[in-house]
Amino acid sequence: MTVTAETGEGPRTRNGARHDESGTGRRVWHPGWVDVCAYDALLPERGAVALVSGVQVALFRMYDGHVHAISNRDPFSGAYVLSRGIVGTRGERPIVASPMHKQAFDLLSGECGDDPAVRVDVFDVRVRAGRVEVYIPRGELAGSGEISEPVTEPGANVGTAPGADVGTEPA
């Protein structure tokens, strides 16, 4: 997994992702730490999902206060539902069980405990000033292939739905 943090100083969108207004009707999304929500918006021991640049990131606030972030896509069913799973522990490891067919995914490694050949992407996540931020890397991710190059997008598709200033899609 190659991670390249962009350092450009474009204007911030409402959700914190940086954009370049190039004047061409396109805007460029720069990967990096993205503000997604208030920490208090996450319920203890329950998941939520954030839409970040077309990527669905499942967030879990654990009993001890830690927040984990993995891809929301259940690789077994293909449905975007992992955020709705029950969180818990297997041994010392924090896990979420897919709500679809109960396979458990390690929230630290993304590995599926029931089928080691399967894993989901794990995102870095941090809490700053009461806000949850997710690190969206640039480049290919190993697991579900959700993210390829985070990119540009025809302006026509941007921001047509309330709060949807995240309007990118995979190239």
């Binding site: 896509r73 069913s77 975007y80 579900s144 959700e146 921001g159 995979p170």
Partner: peptide, 23 residues
Amino acid sequence: GGTESGSLPEGVLGGVADGVPDG
């Protein structure tokens, strides 16, 4: 897609905010 393949096509996930699917 779901019924036939048992899973959703991975391409269908973003950028359809205005209800015009193209994925």
